[in-house]
């Protein structure tokens, strides 16, 4: 009995992070919600773009992406293109994600562009 206790505790600890949060991984969110316009490769070449009047941003474009601060990226994801005077075709995702998920998406975008603000 006694020597099984540590095992039980370990298993319980392992289960906590899985059950305590419904937070999704940034990559999974990106590949569910963003690639329809921004493309499988994040290069702006999504399956929806043919008849769109404004083309989605190429997220692998370090020059363009480094022009935006993390706060601006957070804002455009949460509130949509109009919030930073860009196209309405970039939707607001505030009803889809938690703020934490949006922060993770900003970090994920920094990985895609391999860039920081002001590079």
């Amino acid at each position: 009995m006694l020597n099984k206790a540590p095992l039980c505790i370990t298993i319980m600890l392992l289960l906590i992070p899985v059950t305590a949060t419904s937070q999704e991984q940034a990559r999974d969110n990106y590949e569910t919600y963003c690639i329809q316009c921004h493309g499988i490769q994040g290069n702006g070449m999504g399956v929806n773009i043919r008849d769109m009047s404004v083309q989605p941003r190429d997220h692998t474009d370090a020059k363009a992406m480094s022009g935006r601060s993390d706060d601006e990226l957070f804002k455009v994801i949460k509130e949509g293109g109009l919030s930073i005077n860009k196209s309405v075709l970039m939707p607001p995702w505030g009803s889809t994600f938690t703020d934490n998920e949006i922060h993770d998406l900003v970090k994920y975008l920094r990985k895609l562009c391999k860039c920081k603000h002001g590079d």
Binding site: E31, T32, I35, Q36, G39, I40, Q41, M45, G46, V47, I49, R50
Partner: peptide, 18 residues
């Protein structure tokens, strides 16, 4: 593009296609 579009698209010459 089917039920979940991601499972039915691939990169095309100009942009992703179904």
């Amino acid at each position: 593009a089917g039920m979940f579009y991601r499972q039915h698209i691939k990169p095309g010459p100009k942009h992703d296609i179904v």
